[in-house]
Amino acid sequence: MEDIKKLIQRVGYPRLIIGGFLLILCIFAAVLSIPMPALISDILTRFGMNGILVLAMVPAIQAGVGLNFALPLGIVCGLVGALVSIEFELAGFAGLIVSILIAIPLATIVGYFYGLMLNRIKGQEMTVGNYVGFSAVSGMCIFWLLAPFKSPELIWAVGGSGLRVTVSLESSIGYVLDNFLTFNIAGIQIPTGLLLFFALCCLVVWIFGRTKSGVIMRAAGANEKFATATGINVNKQRVIGVILSTVLGAIGIIVYSQSFGFLQLYNAPLYSAMPAVAAVLIGGASINKVKISHVIVGTFLFQALLVVSLPVLNVLAEGNMSEVIRTIVQNGIIIYALTRKTGGEVA
């Protein structure tokens, strides 16, 4: 009995509930004879495409800034990077690499200033960050409308000014990573390149955590007073964390979009932080503690839940029930994290 209790403690109630729910859905899927290989392919792809956005939470939490609700800041940088590469008619890996290379310095600058701002409002990072993210997305709507892009891929063919609401990536960077070294096994399509790239990003973040800079950043995030007494410039470390998070957000959306096949502009990124935040929390992170494994487990559980629930619930109920389930799970887990006492002072 004690052992079971311990196991539950270790796994945590949120993961148990969501894992259990997922299991039930899988059983239903089997009963309803929904083709499994397609589902698994789908899960793998969505796992890979969302993973980096979730990974972006890690440096922010480690640096003590809490959950990065201002992820849209990084996302719009990534979108700009992708747009520029398309404007120059780049495609394939060249397009992808150029997109990322343009996005990184942009995200670094944005992250730097955002980090400076957060240093002045310690303790309120999440609340403020959330609305900074919203403001950035809605402000960028005006930019998309006025931006001087010329490529016919990007702008409306007839009528309407500014960039299209969704930009097809078919002829540029669409599925570049997904199709790289992809293979089919027992009807399951493995997006090898995508998964490898996600793994690479995880590895980079993991190695960073082992370097002097990483160790010091985590110390600054774990206990500000301790870090100060150890001669660490806490504010600088927080800025580093925010920059890393923003850069990962930028890369994340590029990877996401190439897999999705479209760039979504205007209001699409408005709530984009929420699924990422939810996934890392489902994985077992808290407002002030996170591991790479939380990212991997969380992204997998959350995306698997969404993928499996879609066909199952559509058979069982009317309307877009999968979306409803997503809303409930996603926001439920965030509230759960926000109401934990161990959350510390970060808000």
């Binding site: 926001n331 965030i334 959350g343 002072e345």
Partner: peptide, 18 residues
């Protein structure tokens, strides 16, 4: 969730919507 009521109330709104 004292000290972070605003973000909590907002997320709670989303949750309730679900």
């Amino acid at each position: 969730s004292k000290g972070r009521e605003m973000i909590t109330s907002m997320i709670l709104g989303f949750f309730a919507n679900g």
